[in-house]
């Protein structure tokens, strides 16, 4: 009996040591959690989460100041990824912050109306607008994140948000399960 107890305690101790050693020896040098969160956010920089961009929101999440469901551009996929990373519960997107669009938007400037005031250039968080004072401005569609921040400053309301033009390469095969569900619903 005593022998058994001693053996088992010894073994437990030994395994404990091995595990402890392993956890030190094989520790994953992860990037700080803020970077990891930031990497999952869509980088639209729209501020819909009420923070001044994706990184500030990532910081707020990391500090436990904000829930993970405030980013509409990221939508449910981002929430799931965040929940996965942080090992928390998956929440539903908080509708107060906005709605998730399947096809992202891009800004287009109506070049006839644009007066070249440069206000939108100053508002754009990713420098996606090209132009000089008193000259017509234009949006580099590939760089535009669809954040809409350029809309309010425009004095002549010449910026429109349109769905991103999808090419044939953006088309996706649909999962047969989803098709089946659609067929049953319809």
């Amino acid at each position: 009996m005593l022998l058994a107890i001693v053996t088992i305690s010894l073994m437990a101790g030994l395994f404990g040591l091995i595990l402890g050693y392993a956890s030190i020896r094989f520790k994953v040098e992860g990037n700080p959690v803020v970077d990891q969160i930031d990497a999952l956010l869509p980088q639209t920089q729209c501020g819909q989460c009420t923070y001044a961009g994706c990184r500030p929101y990532a910081e707020a999440i990391a500090n436990g100041e904000a829930p993970i469901n405030q980013c509409p551009p990221g939508g449910q996929a981002t929430i799931v990824a965040l929940a996965d990373l942080l090992d928390t519960e998956v929440l539903k997107l908080n509708a107060e912050h906005g709605e998730h669009l399947d096809v992202p938007l891009v800004a287009v400037i109506d070049e006839q109306t644009c007066i070249g005031c440069t206000l939108c250039i100053q508002a754009c968080p990713v420098d996606a607008i090209l132009g000089a004072a008193k000259h017509m401005h234009t949006v580099i569609a590939d760089e535009c994140t669809g954040c809409k921040l350029c809309l309010p400053p425009c004095p002549v309301d010449c910026i429109d948000m349109v769905p991103e033009r999808l090419t044939i390469d953006d088309w996706k095969w649909s999962n047969p399960l989803d098709q089946l569900e659609l067929a049953q619903d319809g």
Binding site: D38, P42, Q43, T44, Q45, C54, V126, E143, W173, N175
Partner: peptide, 28 residues
């Protein structure tokens, strides 16, 4: 095969989105 094709297009789409968001982050 359709399950695989769907999975492949989702993964490609995600890569593309990731690429775009990385660029946006860099520009920001």
């Amino acid at each position: 095969v359709q399950y695989y094709r769907a999975a492949k297009s989702e993964i490609r789409g995600a890569h593309k989105a990731q690429f775009k968001s990385d660029r946006a982050r860099a520009r920001f």
